[in-house]
Design a protein around this nucleic acid. Structure first.
Lengths: 204, 204
DNA sequence: ATATTTATTAACCAATTAGTTAAACTAAAT
DNA sequence: ATTTAGTTTAACTAATTGGTTAATAAATAT
């Protein structure tokens, strides 16, 4: 019987690397810290992943592959735009409350190395806006929503959902919230954000 | 006559440090690269700023002090909420197109060190939401806008405005835009975003 | 049982990096 | 002219860091 991911060395390394890379970034992460956290010798990192760069890429692809399916709620679901927005906001916020380091990690590392996303784009399953754009055009034609550029709407939706996790320290400071109040605030956004967006686009 | 900031060594160091820290972050920045960019000996960095940490803090405070006044458009201006939102969106986007590294730098470094913002908060001139909240309550009472929590509205406004600069690589990849198309896209947001927000909150 | 492959470790290495030092240079003050 | 204080440099240092190696242990195949 093959050992489960969190029992075998390779999986333990990946888990530890995820922790360290996601909280400290590529430049701030130390191979020794990853090894210590995994409870193994530093040489094992290179035995299984060859270099820091390759270990990092394994972690990054793993993280990105968690994020991409979330987008399917809004991109490739067959429901109405209103339902897409409601479901996405709910699902995405719930998911990110469980993985709060994820958005910042991805954004940060993509900004550090712009070419990196090109590699990801070649992958099948990279999020595609085609169906979403059709739906937007469709609902505009039907007079259900106001005219709006689909790309702009898409960016507005993800901006409103992702930003609270990127800008957490800023939000806490500006709005004078402690950790608990911040959590409540994000919890409320699960419905607040979709109402806001739907109000913004619906035909008066 | 005192030498101007970009002629004297201290100023040249700060300019070079700004470049390097803002594009590579604290961990990715190298003192040697800063010295090279400033065209001086590395020892000068320590002569004027003592340590990497202190040089970094000088750059960070400088960057933050550019950002804070932008927020006054929305926080402490006396005009209507609608005008505040219009003006802020226009001003902020224009400003950030000139300083595209700034948002990511600040967000990233605040996430790396959450305590850092506490120091900033002690400073006078740290953005305060009091007046903005009063204005929101006021316009809700007058029946001009729909009921909404002022903190939520504030976060929505800054999310929609800041995110395009944080998530630039992601947006370019998802919406299949090259640099030029992205620039046009952001340019259009100068009016798009304020319309979107005003639609979302105005009384039907 | 024994050979062979796979997994693991301790010790080491070369390169990088923030920071220091001591000497030299410059310009203003005496 | 000479002292003095501030500025700048080249060379150095100590610590850190990603990565390697050679020996050993464990598991698997013959």
């Amino acid at each position: 019987m093959k050992k489960s991911k969190d029992e075998n060395t390779e999986g333990q390394i990946l888990d530890a690397a995820k922790d360290v890379f996601q909280s400290k970034g590529m430049d701030g992460a130390r191979m020794q810290e990853i090894a210590d956290k995994a409870g193994i010798n530093k040489a094992m990192l290179h035995y299984y992943y060859r270099s820091k760069q390759l270990l990092f890429e394994a972690v990054f692809k793993n993280a990105f592959s968690l994020l991409a399916p979330q987008l399917n709620t809004i991109l490739n679901d067959d429901s109405s735009l209103e339902d897409k927005i409601k479901n996405f906001t709910m699902d995405y916020t719930t998911f990110m409350m469980k993985h709060p380091y994820l958005p910042n990690f991805i954004i940060q590392e993509l900004n550090r190395n712009e070419d990196f996303i090109l590699k990801l784009k070649e992958n099948t399953g990279f999020p595609n806006l085609k169906k979403f754009k059709e739906k937007v055009a469709d609902e505009i034609n039907q007079g259900l929503i106001q005219p709006i550029d689909a790309d702009q709407l898409f960016v507005n939706i993800i901006a409103l959902n992702i930003f609270p996790f990127l800008g957490k320290p800023l939000i806490k400071a500006f709005t004078d919230k402690d950790e608990k109040a911040y959590k409540t605030f994000v919890e409320e956004r699960k419905t607040e954000v979709s109402n806001f967006i739907i109000n913004a686009i619906k035909k008066q």
